[in-house]
């Protein structure tokens, strides 16, 4: 058979096809990133027992009214930028040494031998509960959660490298209390300041303990969830726990 020349495919319309696709993607996509603050809503449970009273010193109340006026820990504040400084102060005041005369939350300092003793006690209790006939599933769960908690603290103190692990009072929390008419802009600003305060606190701690910035550790953990990074973040969280309560407005 005679050799026949294969005609070349006309690529003139390739550009048109590519343009079409390009324009389709331009129209259906956006460049802007979605940035947000993630918060969890407490589970809806029926409470029969009266709530445990919380000491005044353990509350860092950030209040805003429907006229967008701010009040932090009972003091009026005109500049919302100062909220983060107040939160940092809330955590820092008694961190080095407890002073019962001021109204900031107390710290407890626990040593390794104390943690060990409590951990062993928790394990013993959990095993006993499991061994008792017809023990409730929830109670066993609860006991084992406590064991896990102590184990977490143990590894945190090991990583911390000091004799004692300072821990803020378990009740210490930040309370965001707004009214129905408060603008979302201010509400978001409060959230932003809270986030900034925690970043500052944890960043300082991360720099002094690990010689790394908090953002770096967090970024690396987001890329690959390695164990040392997880422990580092857990320690920072134990040192500065982000307990945030958002109060549902009544008026």
């Amino acid at each position: 058979m005679a050799k026949r020349e294969i005609p070349e495919v006309n690529a003139g319309s390739m550009a048109d096809i590519a343009f079409l696709l390009l324009i389709f993607f331009l129209v259906t996509t956006t460049m802007d990133k979605d940035q947000a603050y993630i918060r969890s809503i407490p589970k809806n449970i029926e409470v029969t027992t009266p709530p445990v009273p919380v000491q005044e010193r353990d509350i860092c109340a950030i209040q805003a009214n429907s006229k967008n006026q701010l009040m932090i820990r009972g003091r009026l504040m005109s500049d919302p930028e100062l909220i983060s400084d107040e939160i940092v102060k809330f955590f820092r005041t008694n961190e080095k040494q407890n002073d019962p005369t001021n109204d900031f939350p107390m710290y407890s300092r626990i040593s390794m031998s104390e943690i060990d003793a409590l951990l062993n006690q928790a394990i013993k209790e959990a095993e006993e509960t499991e061994a008792t006939p017809n023990a409730m599933e929830e109670i066993i769960d609860f006991k084992y959660r406590q064991v896990a908690e102590w184990e977490k603290k143990k590894s945190a103190l090991k990583l911390y490298g000091k004799n004692k692990l300072p821990e803020i009072s378990v009740q210490a929390h930040i309370r965001i209390d707004v009214q129905k008419g408060t603008e979302y802009g201010l509400f978001a600003k409060i959230q932003s300041e809270v986030e900034e305060a925690f970043f500052e606190l944890r960043d300082d701690a991360a720099k002094s303990i690990f010689n790394e910035s908090y953002a770096k550790i967090k970024g690396r953990y987001a890329m690959d969830e390695s164990k040392p990074d997880k422990e580092k973040l857990a320690l920072l969280k134990i040192l500065y726990p982000d307990r945030i309560i958002e109060v549902t407005p009544k008026q």
Partner: peptide
């Protein structure tokens, strides 16, 4: 939410989400 939206509405939404146990919320900024 818009800057000027009242926070009361945000909490109304939270209440609805709480009722169906959708417990993670994010405030976009």
């Amino acid at each position: 939410a818009d800057k000027g939206a009242p926070s009361g509405l945000i909490f109304d939404i939270r209440k609805e989400l709480q009722d169906i146990d959708a417990l993670t919320v994010a405030y976009a900024v």
